[in-house]
Simulated assay, not measured.
Amino acid sequence: MTRADTLTEAALLAGLSRERLVGIVRGTDGTAAAKAALAAMEEGFRFVEIALTTPGALEAIGDVRRKAPSGCFVGAGTVMTEKDVDDVAGAGGQFMVTPSLAPSIRASMERGFPLLAGALTPSEAYEAMDRGATAIKLFPASIGGPRYLKAIREPLPDIPFIAVGGVGLDEATGYWDAGAIAVGLGGPLFGDAGSGGDLGPMRGRARSFLSLAAAFSRRTDLPGQQ
């Protein structure tokens, strides 16, 4: 891969803050997962991860990396071990995501890959950043909702949070208002597309999420708005 294909921590943070969305594909078929990820990118998603729990995930990541539209990036989810980091790097993954504190955090940092680390409590979030995480994936965010995110950010205002877990169209704006730089969308976006389901409805949901994010950005870009 060329240097232009690489993704730095700064570029990931800037991109997530601008786009406000991350797609999360988890399914039962790697080929279907790749097709779902590419379909989301074709609709306008710039960041999509494929969970390593998906059979054939590494091959799917490689396929998406080769076919992704310009300006789109593919990552891996459920990256837990140093070996996972090496495998994802070999497949062409451009960023890593964990569901929890894991050895992959430091391994990703040492190998130069940006990583979104799963954490739920203030202590976990602080520790993940101390280990070298690029940002915190608040997971599962639905346990506390936007009010919990707002509370956790009060003592940790400099930590970038992405809300993941149970975030749908009705919830996304609440998390953005609470300070999340982005939201991660699994089932509410992809449904069964990662297991071979119809891509048509998924594309429609993708457009709805993109419209919602664009509307939020327009509102917050107005003078006097946060």
Rank of each mutant, 00 (worst) to 15 (best):
T2K: 13
T8P: 05
E9Y: 03
L12R: 13
S17T: 13
G23R: 06
V25N: 02
D29I: 08
A32S: 13
A39Q: 11
M41H: 06
I50G: 06
L52V: 02
P55H: 10
E59G: 14
G62T: 05
A68S: 12
P69K: 07
G71F: 09
V74C: 04
V74S: 01
T78M: 08
A89Q: 13
G92A: 10
G93T: 03
V97F: 08
T98L: 02
I105H: 06
S108L: 05
F113V: 08
F113C: 08
L115Q: 09
A117M: 12
R131F: 13
A133Y: 01
T134G: 05
A135V: 04
I136A: 10
L138E: 07
P140Y: 03
R147S: 14
F161C: 06
I162S: 02
A163M: 03
E171N: 12
A172F: 08
G174I: 12
Y175K: 06
W176K: 07
I181M: 14
I181V: 14
I181P: 02
A182Y: 01
V183A: 08
L189D: 08
F190V: 03
F190Q: 00
D192M: 00
A193M: 03
A193T: 01
S195C: 11
G197W: 07
G197N: 12
D198G: 09
F209D: 04
L210C: 05
L210Q: 04
L210H: 11
A215Y: 04
R218K: 15
R219L: 14
